[in-house]
Structures are given as C-alpha cells and as structure tokens.
C-alpha cells in the first residue's frame, strides 16, 4: 500500500512508464493521483505508447563552454502533458509539433530513473 506517486516511482525503476485513467473510461491522468482530478473517479494504471508531440520548448543558456540544454513539454498520444527533454538534438533540430517517443534513462549521480524523449522520424506519430 502506497500513494500513487510512489507506485509510479517503483514502476519507473522497473523500467515501465505508467499513466492512470478512470476505471470506467475517460481522460488519462498525469502526474499520478489518488483519484481522478475534477471527478474523483477511481483510477487504474496502464502503459502508454510512449509516443508524443512537442508542445513547447525552451533552451536554457549556460556560461560557455557549457552547452545550452532543452526543456520541453510533451503531449503524449494518450492525452497527458509531461515536462521532459529531447535527447540528441540541437536548437535547429527541435521544433514544436515534432514527434517524439519516451525512453527511461538513469540520470543524476544516484542513477535515478528519468523519462526523456527521442525524436521520431518525420511523418511518424
């Protein structure tokens, strides 16, 4: 027995990105909740496709020689929005509307799992 956020953390550590949705159907939910926001309906977990679209992007500048890094908002195909970053692209290669797919990486000094995104070839959704 734990809160929804801890359950999500444990799944991510096991290599699974989870979302929630109301048991009787309805809009997907993220970040994890104890019940559906707005309605209070009971939620169940499911694994999304991981595919999404870049909704917005900013490049945070750093003092050279440190390179800028991106922070994006991604709309997953299942209808939720997540903050993230897109790997392996420069400022010219990252646009709003771009198709991306989620990947779980070990990030930070403690190797905590983190969701990042990779670009998908043009035309994929």
């Amino acid at each position: 027995m734990s809160g929804a956020a801890q359950h999500w953390d444990e799944a991510l550590a096991a290599g699974r990105l989870l979302l929630q949705r109301p048991v009787g159907g309805g809009a997907a939910v993220f970040p994890p909740r104890e019940f559906a926001p707005g309605s209070g309906a009971a939620l169940e977990w499911f694994e999304p496709s991981g595919r999404g679209t870049v909704y917005s992007v900013t490049w945070v500048q750093r003092r050279p020689p440190e390179a800028p890094y991106n922070v994006v908002l991604v709309d997953l195909a299942e209808g939720v929005r997540m903050m993230g970053r897109v790997e392996g692209v420069g400022e010219d290669g990252l646009q709003i509307g771009m198709a991306v797919t989620a990947r779980i990486v070990a990030a930070g000094p403690d190797g905590a799992p983190l969701v990042v995104f990779d670009p998908l070839p043009e035309g994929t959704r």
Binding site: S56, V57, T58, V60, V71, M83, I96
Partner: peptide, 25 residues
C-alpha cells in the same frame, strides 16, 4: 515540483519561456 525539477528548468523563468515559445508558435 518533483515532476519538473529533474529537467532543470529555471524557476520560474523557463515556465514563462515555454509559454512565450508556444504563443509565438
């Protein structure tokens, strides 16, 4: 918050930058 912090947005500046980028788009 914990869902955003790992991506190191400047708080609060990058949030407004994301809004500006979207408005421009």
């Amino acid at each position: 918050d914990r869902w955003e912090a790992p991506y190191a947005p400047l708080y609060p500046l990058s949030s407004y930058a994301l809004a500006a980028a979207r408005h421009m788009h």
